[in-house]
């Protein structure tokens, strides 16, 4: 059957997102898109830290309460995944590190004081959290979980899985730059995914051709403080409380967007050492160095489809 591409644009998780699907007719495409977007909205309503009645807000509001909060299986799996990332990154990937935002205000050109940093670090550490795979306890008042770098990517995977389950073979979901390719264009050609230049978010530094799987980026795109000519980016080291240095942005290709997302985040947090680590991980990737020069790892499939 001749299929056409249908594009759906929607807002969720503080981003404008795009779902592109190939279907035989508009009715079919809309039915699939509606279900997929509903699933994403549901994830947002559960895991947004901005929504007052989300499960995450409930967990965060329980901080200091030793009874904690009982969670469902999906949340348990997300927490287990986050714990795995924490362990695999030697504590660099930490979903409790979001509290650093309280002292790093990137809208004002002002650095936090050493004592502010030291006080905030007290509230950080997945190892301080009590997690028994069904109940979570944030033992200290002021502690907070943040699924940034996990939930948006997971939402892209969830959306792709749903679309595939509903018979879509060709399509792509783009959640504000976190992408899961459901399958190539019907003629077999890959999707061309633009990678933003960190200096100029409006321009595209390169494109990645992808037929299947996830692509996610992590980096310092705009928010930064410049003091005495030194740039302070918004990727913060949970151990020091200070911005990491070495890389400007990293994009990783992986079978799942979730894995691409956490891998790119860990690489950014590792700074200069992140490149060697990525080589060891063995996934295709590209990165921008501090002066925004682009490097592409050799077997990242960057080429134009001919």
């Amino acid at each position: 059957m001749a299929m056409r591409q249908y594009d759906f644009s929607f807002e969720a998780m503080a981003c404008v997102n795009e779902l592109s699907l190939y279907a035989s007719n508009k009715r079919q495409a809309t039915a699939v898109a509606k279900k997929a977007i509903d699933a994403i909205n549901k994830l947002e309503s559960r895991y947004s830290r901005y929504l007052p009645d989300s499960l995450l807000t409930r967990i965060n509001e329980s901080a200091g309460d030793t009874r904690g909060v009982a969670v469902d299986e999906e949340t348990a799996a997300l927490l287990n995944y986050s714990q795995t990332c924490f362990e695999q990154s030697d504590g660099m990937f930490d979903i409790t590190s979001g509290v650093l935002r309280r002292i790093w205000n990137f809208r004002e050109n002002k650095l936090p004081t050493d004592s502010e940093v030291a006080d905030t670090l007290q509230l950080i550490g997945w190892d301080k959290v009590i997690w028994d795979e069904s109940r979570i306890v944030l033992p200290l008042t002021g502690m907070e979980l943040d699924f940034g770098g996990v939930v948006k990517e997971y939402a892209a995977d969830t959306c792709a899985t749903l679309c595939r389950d509903m018979g879509v073979r060709h399509g792509l979901i783009n959640m504000g730059g976190d992408i899961h390719v459901i399958g190539p264009h019907p003629d077999g050609s890959p999707w061309k995914i633009g990678i933003q230049s960190p200096d100029d978010p409006g321009s595209i530094a390169t494109t990645v051709n992808l037929k299947h799987g996830g692509l996610a980026s992590s980096g310092d795109y705009q928010r930064s403080i410049v003091i005495d000519g030194k740039r302070y980016g918004h990727i913060l080291n949970p151990k020091t409380g200070w911005p990491v240095e070495g890389l400007r942005a990293v994009s990783v290709v992986a079978p799942q967007c979730l894995i691409a997302g956490s891998t790119s985040t860990i690489a950014m947090l590792k700074g200069e050492a992140g490149k060697r680590w990525l080589d060891e991980v063995g996934l295709p990737y590209l990165w921008f160095d501090e002066s925004s020069r682009l490097f592409i790892k050799d077997d990242c499939s960057m080429r134009e489809a001919s």
Binding site: Q5, D7, E18, S20, L172, N174, H185, D187, S189, W191, K192, I193, G194, I204, T207, A305, S306
Partner: peptide, 20 residues
């Protein structure tokens, strides 16, 4: 034209030379 707007241009029959 943004990369995600290239669905049409990426079609095989939109290639400059569909059969080289």
């Amino acid at each position: 034209v943004k990369p995600w707007e290239r669905g049409t241009l990426a079609k095989e029959h939109m290639a400059i030379e569909p059969d080289a």
